[in-house]
Amino acid sequence: MTDTSATTAPTAAMFPPGRYGRRRAPRTRRPWLVALLATVAVLVGMLVTVRLYTLYGDPTYDPKVITYTEATTDGILIDFTVTVPPGGSANCLVRARSHDGVEVGRDQVTVRAEPGERQIRTTYRLATERQAFLGEVIRCQPVG
């Protein structure tokens, strides 16, 4: 009579000898490796956050384009406002693009507020390499 599943002990799996290769020993766990990778991931995330904040952050220096006019082959007039801390000043990056989206002019503009003033309105004539289609203020940062 042969053994059936009802008569064998369920202690270990039965495999035919030589059929499935040799069994591997269980691998040792490395919790320090998981902790190291998690720490590196957090540090990289923090560096990316700091970099993006320095490029696009600080809502205190908030530029808004009011209008862009007088687009010619050699320049465009950009009228914009910047919100700054009272009495502060800002460096603003302005650019002009052509109809096909190519950048045709870029410049750094420094604007200063009067004491107690938070909104600075500025009109700036940006020189361009060819016909401009639109003017933009990319970002403003504190003078420093």
Rank of each mutant, 00 (worst) to 15 (best):
T72V: 11
T60W: 03
Y61M: 08
A38L: 10
A38W: 01
A41K: 04
D58K: 06
D62T: 04
V82L: 03
I78W: 05
P86G: 03
T81Y: 02
V82P: 04
V40L: 09
T49R: 12
Y56H: 12
T81M: 02
G75W: 00
Y53D: 15
I66C: 05
V48G: 14
M46G: 13
I76Q: 05
T81S: 03
A71C: 08
L47G: 14
Y68H: 11
T72W: 06
I66K: 06
A41V: 07
Y56K: 10
V42L: 14
L47P: 07
T73S: 11
L52V: 12
I78S: 05
D74V: 07
T73Q: 05
V50R: 10
P63M: 04
Y53P: 08
D74F: 00
T60Y: 08
V84W: 02
V40R: 00
L77N: 09
L77M: 08
L77Y: 05
E70M: 10
I76V: 14
G75H: 08
V65I: 04
V82S: 01
A41F: 01
V44S: 08
F80L: 02
D74T: 15
P85I: 05
G87P: 09
V82Q: 01
L52F: 12
L55V: 13
V50G: 12
L52I: 11
L47E: 14
L77C: 01
E70D: 15
E70G: 08
G75I: 04
V84E: 02
D74I: 08
T60D: 14
E70F: 07
V84R: 00
V50E: 13
M46V: 15
G75D: 03
R51S: 15
D62E: 03
A71Q: 12
I78A: 04
K64L: 04
D58Y: 07
T49K: 09
K64Y: 03
P59L: 10
Y53K: 06
T83L: 08
Y56L: 13
D74E: 10
Y53G: 11
V42G: 07
L47T: 14
D62C: 00
Y68I: 01
R51P: 03
M46E: 12
I66S: 03
V82I: 05
Y53Q: 14
V82H: 01
F80E: 04
D79C: 00
Y68K: 00
K64A: 08
T83E: 11
T73W: 01
D74Q: 09
V50M: 13
V48K: 07
V44C: 04
R51F: 13
V84D: 04
F80D: 03
R51M: 12
G45V: 09
L55P: 09
I66Y: 03
V84H: 00
L55D: 15
L52S: 14
D74L: 02
P59E: 13
A71V: 06
T54M: 10
F80I: 05
R51L: 11
M46R: 10
L52Q: 15
T69D: 13
E70K: 11
L47V: 13
D58I: 04
A41G: 14
L47H: 11
T72A: 14
V84G: 02
D79I: 02
G57I: 06
V44K: 01
